[in-house]
Design a protein around this nucleic acid. Structure first.
Length: 289
RNA sequence: GGCCCGAUAGCUCAGCAGGUAGAGCAAAGGACUGAAAAUCCUUGUGUCCCCAGUUCGACCCUGGGUUGGGCCA
């Protein structure tokens, strides 16, 4: 069985993954977009160093923030790794729904050169929108005029592949490639989740998050994509006091948790949402028994 | 004790010749194929402090209270 553990940030996914790993003897594979970076540590709530060094944990802390990792690379890395385990008997954990979808479903990423950062940067949103309307009106309407990043991406796809996004994507997102997957969702009360988030941010500060971030800024500058991570980007604002930064991180984390829930609920159909360990154990016994 | 100012959404506040209200933030819901901890869309929550009075009608005017702040004793 492939167990995919999903849920919002701070809901206890990592602990559950470790519990299952112990119980079943399966390795743990990460699908979190920021825990892959070795330099990001105190702000990303990774499992402990001991666990990461234990030979049972994969795709954590193995990339540098200077490398600009992305979904397509993750898909390759994760599928290669899965095949090393014969595509069976692993635990997937993480918070990046898109990475999990791209891994397990038939998302196709054709070879392409990385998009230059200044691609179409001189166009206004309206110009980008009008241009996409000519190529793929459905997609343009879905994206909307204000979603500049996606408009540019859609136009880039057309410029290098000669096809629009809809043509390239043809329904792969609903086609599950691995048939032995069990999705376990952590169903946690919203108020309790928010309390846990607030508390975890306090602890991150006590553990020296500020120093870690400032040192990284000194080494690498502030403009790396990885510094868009919550817990890092908020420090890139000289007008805020430490307390204000802390509160902002809490708020951004709460908003993020909300977005994760939306994605998991709507993008994954057969999730067993569990409220406690008994329910989870029951799901596993049904599958393995 | 006297005088002045305030009390309206979870928070900070705006409002109106008297016709039961609206901004920002927080929040909620949603989208999602190469930056996804990213990016974007939608939504307004109310004993307008309480009790009387005036009025067809009061968040608004009058009187009395409650409560917070300031000034003077």
């Amino acid at each position: 069985m492939i167990y995919a553990v999903l849920g919002p940030t701070c809901s206890g996914k990592s602990d559950l993954a470790e519990f299952l790993s112990q119980k079943l003897g399966y390795p743990v594979i990460n699908f979190d977009a920021f825990q892959v970076y070795k330099e990001l540590d105190k702000g990303t709530a990774k499992p402990s160093k001991e666990l990461l060094d234990s030979n049972r944990y994969f795709l954590y802390s193995f990339k540098s923030i200077t490398e600009n990792y992305d979904v397509s690379q993750y898909q390759t890395d994760a599928r290669n790794l899965l095949s090393r385990f014969n595509n069976d008997n692993v635990i997937l954990v993480g918070g990046t729904g898109l990475y999990l979808k791209a891994l397990l479903f038939d998302y196709k990423f054709e070879d392409e050169k990385r998009m230059p950062d200044d691609f179409l940067s001189n166009k206004t949103n309206e110009e980008l929108f009008d241009e996409l309307m000519k190529i793929d009106p459905d997609d343009a309407k879905k994206i909307g005029v204000n979603n500049r990043k996606r408009l540019i991406r859609a136009l880039y796809i057309y410029s290098i592949h000669g096809k629009n996004k809809s043509e390239l994507n043809d329904n792969g997102k609903d086609n599950l490639l691995y048939k032995n997957v069990v999705f376990i969702g952590i169903d946690i009360n919203r108020d309790i989740l928010y309390e846990r988030i607030n508390k975890r941010v306090d602890i991150m500060f006590e553990n020296g998050l500020k120093d870690e971030v400032n040192n990284l800024f000194i080494y690498y500058g502030k403009s790396l994509r990885a510094f868009q991570a919550i817990g890092y980007k908020e420090f890139n604002n000289s007008l805020l006091s430490d307390d204000e930064i802390k509160e902002l991180i809490k708020k951004n984390t709460r908003n993020y948790a909300k977005r994760q829930l939306t994605f998991f609920k709507h993008q994954f159909k057969d999730v067993k949402w569990c409220k406690n360990l008994e329910e989870i154990t029951q799901v596993i016994e049904n599958k393995n028994g």
